[in-house]
C-alpha cells in the first residue's frame, strides 16, 4: 500500500523523540504535501547541519565553529566555568542572558544503575580546565536529582586540588511559584537555604 521509500521515511521520523509510528506517518504526509516549501529545505538543512556542526573540543558544546562561538568570545569572563549536564542546559542558561562566563558540558551524570562512570563523562577534562590559573570559580549547574547531586559532589571532590571556588545553583521556590503548591522536599530545601533580606 505504502511505497518502500515512504515506509523508510516514516520509520526514520518515528525514531525522533516524542514521535511514534502514527505521528511519524502524519509528519511524513505533511512533508510530502509541502515538498517545495518544507521537505526540500528541511533535507538540505539536515544535510548541511550534519556536515558542518562539530563538537567544541573545549566545552563540548555543538557549533559550526571549533572552538565554539562561546569559547572563542573574548568578551566573556574566563575566570568562571559553568558545568552543565547537556547542551539543552547550556542553551537554557544562555537564554537567561545573565551568565557571561564559559561552559563545560559533561554529557550526562554519574549513574551506578546505568553504568555511567567518571570516565564516560568529561570530568577528567573539566579537572584539567579548572586547573588553569585564570579560572577562579566553577559553578555546578546540574539537576536537583539524586544522580545530578551525586555528580556535583563528585566534581567538588575532584576539584579540591585546584585553586578554585566551587559553587552550586540554589534550590528552592521558583519565580511565580506558590508555596502551598510546592512539594515538601523543595520547601524543606528552600527553608534550609533561606537568606537575609
Amino acid at each position: 500500500m505504502i511505497g518502500t521509500e515512504i515506509e523508510h521515511l516514516i520509520k526514520l521520523i518515528s525514531k525522533l523523540p516524542g514521535l511514534g509510528p502514527r505521528s511519524a506517518r502524519r509528519a511524513a504526509l505533511h512533508l510530502l504535501k509541502n515538498r517545495e516549501s518544507l521537505m526540500l529545505p528541511l533535507s538540505q538543512a539536515l544535510g548541511k547541519a550534519a556536515e558542518v556542526i562539530v563538537e567544541c573540543p573545549e566545552c563540548h558544546n555543538l557549533d559550526t565553529a571549533s572552538p565554539c562561538s562561546i569559547c572563542a568570545s573574548p568578551a566573556r569572563d574566563r575566570g568562571i566555568l559553568c558545568v552543565v549536564e547537556d547542551i539543552a542546559d547550556l542553551w537554557a542558561l544562555e537564554k537567561t542572558g545573565s551568565y557571561r562566563g564559559y561552559y563545560h558540558v559533561l554529557g550526562g551524570t554519574l549513574s551506578a544503575l546505568d553504568g555511567v562512570g567518571p570516565d564516560d563523562l568529561s570530568i577528567p577534562h573539566l579537572a584539567r580546565r579548572a586547573g588553569d590559573e585564570r579560572v577562579r570559580e566553577v559553578i555546578i549547574a546540574l539537576n536537583a536529582t539524586i544522580d545530578g547531586q551525586t555528580t556535583a559532589h563528585y566534581i567538588s571532590d575532584c576539584l579540591q586540588a585546584c585553586n578554585v571556588s566551587v559553587t552550586q545553583l540554589a534550590h528552592g521556590v521558583p519565580i511565580g511559584g506558590q508555596i502551598d503548591y510546592l512539594d515538601d522536599g523543595t520547601l524543606a530545601t528552600a527553608l534550609k537555604s533561606r537568606k537575609a533580606i
Binding site: A144, I146, Q149, H171, D183, D184, G185, T186, A188, T189, K192
Partner: peptide, 8 residues
C-alpha cells in the same frame, strides 16, 4: 521526600 533532606 527523604531524598530532598540529604541531597546537599
Amino acid at each position: 521526600s527523604y531524598a530532598a533532606d540529604v541531597i546537599s
